[in-house]
Design a binder for these strands. Structure first.
Lengths: 168, 168
DNA sequence: ATTTACTTTCAATAATTACTGAAAGTTTAA
DNA sequence: TTAAACTTTCAGTAATTATTGAAAGTAAAT
């Protein structure tokens, strides 16, 4: 198999996976392309390799920068921006988790907390059940929050590493 | 706040959250409605409460059954099916994880493994880099797989529980 | 066997989300 | 300054995904 074929297969796969997880195909593919490139790439390189429009390439590169998955890099003598991916897979995973936590989990928890804080005017079995369900959900979101903290610390966490190893 | 209002807020929130995580709005809302209902509901009840078409309601109830998040239930004397949700939040979470693992993670890992297994015909820095990237990704997917196992076992796992508590 | 009560399917349509490309904006260099 | 090189924006369009509702399918009751 040629390098280009392997790259292409991986890029496609990453695009499909991304879209299953709420990350759009172009963003995932750009990320995969940068992961596979030993060198930095320009917007033009990316447009060319993935056949994307300038607007699409630019927006998704911007988004990858926001997610801290991609860095800007300037080449001596070149005026335009080049990009390179964070290559450490664990760092990538924790960054993604952090971003999703910040953007979705934390706001969701706040909203559930707000509903939870409301007193229900009725006082019957249904209200009890509703309150319990909402409380459970709030607690659950708190747990997930903790769990993501745990993962963020996992690389420095020797006990956790051992637990993972034991499960192998 | 009236019961109905609290329910409605929670259902809306759950719908939004779901769609951020690749679960469609109707499915998430039906799930929320069933979670909030102390009693079982029929397809008609669900259509009525969420203003969904019969087709949409039916398809998404079916999907929730597939995910093991909702159970069928027959009422004595009634011919039609009624539905109730699994109410234990931890069970819900592990079921969702299990399903996503089965449907997405495992197949993805297989595909990455296939690409990894291919020998690259070229032999230069780029091929080395590609091979390393793909190998890292494969290992990473394996880790996630382990991690989901860990979570699946977490409720019975006292050490894990303590770690979560320490992180509070 | 036929009717009635219910469930499932699916082609058509609506809603949402992603992408394009040209124009406007910005920065650097001459 | 002005021009060239590059980046960003965004209205229009395309692609994807979700929803409807009527028709077909199935099972129970008469």
């Amino acid at each position: 198999m040629k390098n280009q074929e392997a790259k292409q297969e991986f890029i496609n796969l990453w695009g499909v996976l991304g879209s299953q997880w709420g990350i759009n195909r172009s963003m995932a593919q750009i990320h995969a392309l940068l992961l596979l490139s030993p060198d930095t790439l320009s917007t033009e390189d990316i447009m060319e390799a993935l056949q994307l429009s300038r607007g699409n390439a630019n927006m998704n590169i911007r988004e990858l920068l926001n997610w801290n998955l991609v860095y800007k890099s300037f080449l001596p003598g070149e005026r335009k921006e080049f990009f390179k991916a964070e290559h450490d897979i664990w760092t990538i995973a924790t960054r993604i988790m952090n971003e999703r936590k910040k953007r979705e989990l934390v706001p969701a928890k706040k909203l559930v907390e707000n509903i939870r804080a409301e007193k229900l005017t009725e006082n019957n079995d249904e209200s009890k059940h509703i309150q319990k369900t909402i409380a459970d959900m709030d607690d659950f979101l708190g747990r997930i929050d903790q769990l993501s903290d745990l993962m963020l610390k996992a690389e420095q966490n020797i006990i956790f590493k051992k637990m993972l190893t034991l499960l192998k």
